[in-house]
Structure formats: structure tokens, C-alpha cells
Amino acid sequence: MEATVFIEDSLRKILASVSDPEIPVLSIMDMGVVREAKLENGIAKIKITPTYSGCPAMDVIGDDIKSALKNEGFDSKIELVLSPAWTTDWITEKGRKDLEAYGIAAPLDADSDKAALLGNKRVVKCTNCGSQNTKMVSQFGSTACKALFQCEDCLEPFDYFKCLK
């Protein structure tokens, strides 16, 4: 689902400086979890949405946003919204590149994702050597959003960020 996101210009840079505590290279703006940021009577009102329902990073992200804004002189109110539900489509192009550079394969489209996770097709690219000769080790990885893969050419184990639609 496409959703328009309003982000106040004066807040954009501050928000972009906050990163996902579990994937420190990924800005929360590139992850697509900030759904609105506006100033009302000098108070920054920020809406964020969880990636997964049980994502333990959400509380930390909320706190980090608050302190980043505080450092720049803004009081803030954080609201957690559920709808529309987050999808990996909201990860920006830059976010995808940052993930790959960090060693996490970026999510594929839904069909390729399913084929890869069922072991029907070798389509997830190794983040170390680029080979597509990779196999799934575990559908669930170190966090709910990732699956564990291994490259059969260079033998590197790596995380794959699962497609969520």
C-alpha cells in the first residue's frame, strides 16, 4: 500500500541521524518506520510504525528520537501507529544499499522471496562474493525480520532481510 508521508523539513535531518539499534548503519528514515513528523506549537509530533509487532527495537527507537530531537532543542511526542502496516517496500534505495554494505541481503520481491525461503530457487545474492549459489539455513534469523543464509561458493553465512508485504 502506498502511503504519503509528511516530514517537516526542519526535522528531517535530525530524524535521519537516528538509526535502528539492531542495524546501526540503517537510518530509521531509510527503514521507512517514520510515518509523520510535524511541528505543532513548537512540539515535534512523530508517528512511527513497528516493522514486526514484537520488535523490541521500537521502544529504543522512540527514546532515541526523543533524545536526538531534545539535543536540537525540540520537545517531542512519539506515537506508535499500526495502520497502514509496514512493508519492506518502504525501505529506501539508499537503505537497501546500506543493508547490503553491512552484510545483510536486501529483501527481494514477494515471489522470489517465497521461492528462496522454500528452497525452490537460488536467488538471494551472497553479500560477500555476490554469488547466487546460496542456501537457506533457517527461515528465522537473529531477529524476526531476517532469515539465515549461507553461500555455497565462499561459505560465508549471512542474513537476508525477508520480504514483508
Binding site: 514486526y52 509487532s53 514484537g54 520488535c55 539455513v137 533457517s138 527461515q139 534469523g141 537473529s142 524476526a144
Partner: peptide
């Protein structure tokens, strides 16, 4: 096994997250 351990606890986490909502 490690993989099923992680999978089952990830599922647990999803369910508890939904419960919180």
C-alpha cells in the same frame, strides 16, 4: 537445534507483540 530454537522464540516474540497491541 539452534535454528528451530531461534525460529520458535521469534514466533513467540511476534505473538507477544501482537498480544501487546
Amino acid at each position: 537445534s539452534l535454528e528451530t530454537d531461534i525460529a520458535l522464540t521469534n514466533i513467540s516474540l511476534d505473538l507477544l507483540g501482537q498480544t501487546r497491541s
